[in-house]
Computed example of a mutant assay.
Amino acid sequence: MAKLLKTIPICAAVLGLSACIPFSEAPKSSRSNSAFSSPDARLCLSNLERAKISFAALPDTQYGGGCQAVNSVRLIDFGTPTSNLGPMTCNLASGFTGWARDVVRPAARKYLGSDLARIETSGTYSCRRVSGSGNLSQHASANAVDVFAFVTKDGRRVTVLNGWNGDSRESKFLRQIHADACGRFGTVLGPQYNQQHRNHFHLDMSPSRLNGNSYCR
């Protein structure tokens, strides 16, 4: 089995990021991590390797209050610089990198006339609850990412806030990648869902995805 731990620091490997989340603990090899003892977890890591994704397998971490990062990785390089990515479950990392590669990049060329240079997010793991609910958010399990904007190589910055109902090319681009995300993630929320999501896409690998269903709004 190929060595899973990559040694290139994330902030050096991914140029052009608007921010990086530091980690005080050096990543460990998955071979010493109980999170990768299950067949599903090992298969996910193998799939990332086959897709030539550069990543570091992270040790399981319990933060208290039900918040945790289990079966998680840190993405280092998958061909598209992306800001603020912290720990992500392996399944989320697989879904996100596939979406960026197979959906967002082609859509940027088709609708915006330029290659994708960067994706801007507000992060992944965050120990918080769903607004108006006592339930923990998928962010509390490092199983969600919020995407706010996309930057093309010709300098165009497309935000969910301004582009969803704005310039026709930007609107078509955003609506296409939102629709295509629905087949890749368990939950996809955007401006049509509520005011709290008017400025970003929430993408997560909630359990509904395991049943072949997704909640898309």
Score class of each variant (00 low, 15 high):
1 M>F: 04
4 L>C: 12
5 L>S: 05
8 I>D: 14
8 I>K: 13
10 I>K: 02
11 C>Q: 07
15 L>V: 14
17 L>C: 14
17 L>D: 09
19 A>Y: 06
19 A>P: 03
19 A>T: 14
22 P>H: 12
22 P>C: 11
23 F>I: 10
23 F>D: 14
23 F>Y: 14
23 F>W: 11
24 S>I: 12
27 P>S: 11
27 P>C: 09
32 S>P: 00
36 F>E: 02
39 P>S: 15
41 A>W: 11
41 A>K: 10
42 R>E: 13
48 L>T: 10
54 S>W: 12
55 F>H: 14
56 A>S: 14
57 A>T: 14
58 L>G: 06
58 L>H: 08
60 D>Y: 01
62 Q>C: 00
65 G>N: 11
65 G>S: 06
70 V>R: 13
75 L>F: 04
77 D>K: 06
82 T>S: 11
82 T>F: 10
83 S>Q: 01
84 N>T: 07
84 N>E: 09
87 P>G: 00
88 M>H: 03
90 C>Y: 02
91 N>Q: 14
92 L>C: 03
92 L>G: 05
92 L>R: 08
96 F>W: 15
96 F>D: 06
96 F>P: 05
97 T>R: 04
100 A>Q: 14
100 A>T: 09
102 D>I: 04
103 V>S: 12
103 V>A: 11
104 V>W: 07
110 K>D: 15
112 L>Y: 13
112 L>F: 11
113 G>S: 13
115 D>I: 07
116 L>A: 10
117 A>T: 09
117 A>C: 10
119 I>D: 13
120 E>W: 09
121 T>Q: 13
124 T>V: 15
125 Y>M: 06
127 C>K: 08
127 C>E: 10
128 R>G: 03
130 V>D: 05
130 V>Q: 05
131 S>P: 04
132 G>W: 07
138 Q>K: 01
139 H>V: 03
141 S>E: 09
143 N>Y: 06
144 A>M: 07
148 F>N: 12
150 F>D: 07
153 K>P: 00
162 N>H: 06
163 G>L: 08
167 D>T: 03
170 E>M: 08
172 K>T: 01
174 L>Y: 05
175 R>E: 02
176 Q>C: 00
176 Q>Y: 09
178 H>G: 00
178 H>P: 00
180 D>Y: 01
180 D>K: 15
180 D>E: 15
181 A>F: 02
185 F>T: 04
186 G>C: 08
189 L>S: 05
189 L>H: 04
190 G>R: 01
191 P>M: 01
191 P>F: 03
192 Q>E: 14
194 N>M: 05
197 H>P: 03
197 H>Y: 11
200 H>K: 10
202 H>N: 09
209 R>T: 06
212 G>C: 07
215 Y>K: 11
216 C>L: 10
